[in-house]
Simulated scan of single mutants.
Amino acid sequence: MTGPGDGPDQVAADRFGPPEDDIARLWTPHRMVYIGGQDKPADSTPQQCPFCRIPTGEDADGLVVARGADCFALLNLYPYNGGHLMVLPYRHVSDYTDLTGAETTELAAMTQEAMRVLRTVYAPAGFNLGMNQGEVAGAGIAAHLHQHVVPRWLGDANFLPVVGRTKALPELLADTRARLAAAWPAR
Rank of each mutant, 00 (worst) to 15 (best):
Met1Pro: 15
Gly3Thr: 11
Gly7Gln: 05
Gly7Phe: 09
Gln10Lys: 10
Gln10Ile: 12
Ala12Thr: 13
Arg15Ile: 06
Gly17Lys: 06
Pro18Val: 08
Glu20Asp: 10
Glu20Ile: 12
Asp21Leu: 04
Arg25Ile: 13
Leu26Ser: 13
Pro29Trp: 07
Pro29Gly: 05
Arg31Cys: 00
Arg31Asn: 03
Val33Pro: 04
Gly36Phe: 08
Gln38Leu: 06
Asp39Ile: 00
Pro41Asn: 04
Ala42Pro: 00
Ser44Val: 11
Gln48Phe: 01
Cys49Ile: 04
Phe51Ser: 06
Phe51Ile: 08
Arg53Lys: 15
Ile54Val: 14
Pro55Lys: 04
Thr56Glu: 15
Glu58Ser: 15
Asp61Cys: 06
Ala66Arg: 01
Arg67Phe: 01
Leu75Ile: 07
Tyr78Asp: 10
Gly82Gln: 03
Gly83Ala: 02
Met86Pro: 02
Ser94Ile: 07
Asp95Gln: 15
Leu99Asp: 11
Glu103Val: 12
Ala109Val: 08
Thr111Gln: 03
Gln112Leu: 11
Glu113Met: 14
Met115Glu: 12
Val117Ile: 01
Leu118Val: 06
Val121Thr: 07
Ala125Trp: 02
Ala125Ile: 02
Phe127Ala: 02
Asn128Arg: 10
Gly130His: 06
Gly130Arg: 03
Asn132Thr: 00
Gln133Ile: 06
Gly134Glu: 10
Glu135Gly: 06
Ala139Met: 08
Ile141Cys: 05
Ile141Glu: 03
His144Glu: 05
Leu145Asn: 02
His148Arg: 02
Trp153Lys: 03
Ala157Met: 13
Asn158Gly: 15
Phe159His: 10
Pro161Thr: 04
Pro161Phe: 01
Val163Pro: 02
Gly164Ala: 15
Ala168Met: 12
Leu169Asp: 11
Glu171Ala: 14
Leu172Arg: 12
Leu172Ile: 11
Leu173Thr: 03
Leu173Trp: 01
Thr176His: 01
Trp184Gln: 03
Trp184Ile: 00
Ala186Phe: 04
